[in-house]
Amino acid sequence: MLKIQRRWIANSLPDRELIYALTYAYSELHRVCKDLATQMGSALDASVPHPTALDPSSNDVARVRFVKFAKPGIGRHTSVRMNQDPNYKAPPAFVALREALCLAPKPSSLADVVAMHAKLAQATFEQHGNHIPMLALYDKTWKQIDFMSTAFTDQSEKYLFWRNVADRAFYLKAFAMVWTSESWVRDISEGAQRPIHELPIIGEQLHVVGADASNGCEVVSWEIERSDGAGGPVLTRLSPDDPRQAGHFNFTKPVVAAMKMAHSSGAS
């Protein structure tokens, strides 16, 4: 009986190992129970693990290991869950923005969600003078189902990060992603001859990039201008047809492919 059950799960999720299938099943059960608790005016007990706590890519269940030729030893991807600081007091600008967003209609499209994140990104940058990378995943009803940040030490870690995001998007059955991050703008005229990290930096931008399983794409970008004086950095919003606007965000492609797989008839 166990063998039949295992074969059925594996066959229902092509190209996925059993552990990913079980993680997917648990995330679906968690979603149903959470929605039921909300419907009844309650909430899941804090001791119930979130599906991302069982992420096979960030624990030893899948036993995925990586080797960097420039660094000795074997590495692995890790994720750390952080609780909200109960003593945190939001600045007045954030309180005002939260109140405005609560009064606004609920987002009902990718454009709405990206516009909301753009307001948050601009307020965050103007408050702190910078913006750490942030990723949010949404379900088909435009409810946020996952949120994370990251720190990259080199180019290879970006590939590992987006591989893990694709896995999470699949087993959480995400429909859309929104990525907020600062980025360097480089001169790519010699891109075919030199590694990207050696290309000259010619500017900085702040991006909010949204993509979904229906091939939707929404981008909001700002040019970051830094003065030599005491003043902080200034954001200048770029229009969609501005030549300074970055062209392609290829890192979204594996995540979009995973979201499409999650919403295909075979994974429903």
Rank of each mutant, 00 (worst) to 15 (best):
L22E: 12
L29M: 11
Y24S: 07
S27N: 06
A43F: 15
H77D: 07
V48N: 00
T78N: 14
V67F: 01
L54Y: 05
L135P: 06
H50S: 06
Y88E: 09
F66C: 00
T124E: 15
S109E: 07
P91D: 00
N59R: 03
G75C: 06
I132T: 14
A37S: 08
R81W: 11
V32K: 07
P86S: 07
D60T: 09
G41Y: 05
G41I: 03
S58T: 15
K68E: 00
R98W: 10
D35M: 15
M40W: 12
T52A: 11
Y20T: 00
L22A: 04
P92Q: 05
N87D: 12
K119A: 15
N83T: 11
L120I: 14
S108T: 15
D139K: 02
K106G: 09
M82A: 10
T23H: 08
P49W: 00
R65H: 02
R31D: 09
I132Q: 13
S57Y: 11
D35W: 13
K89S: 10
V48T: 04
K34D: 13
N83L: 15
D60M: 08
V48Q: 01
A121W: 12
L97R: 10
D35L: 13
I132H: 11
S58D: 01
I132R: 08
A115S: 12
S27Y: 02
G129Q: 02
R81P: 07
L135C: 12
D55C: 13
Y88N: 07
A118D: 08
A25S: 10
L135W: 09
C33G: 08
M82R: 11
Q127N: 14
T78W: 10
A70F: 02
H30F: 11
K34M: 09
G41F: 04
M116L: 14
A115W: 01
Q39L: 12
A46V: 03
S57A: 12
V61A: 15
T124V: 07
L135A: 08
D60S: 15
R81Y: 11
D45T: 04
Y24I: 02
V113D: 01
Y20E: 13
Y138N: 03
L36C: 03
A62W: 02
A43R: 13
A53I: 05
S79M: 13
L135G: 04
K119V: 06
N87T: 10
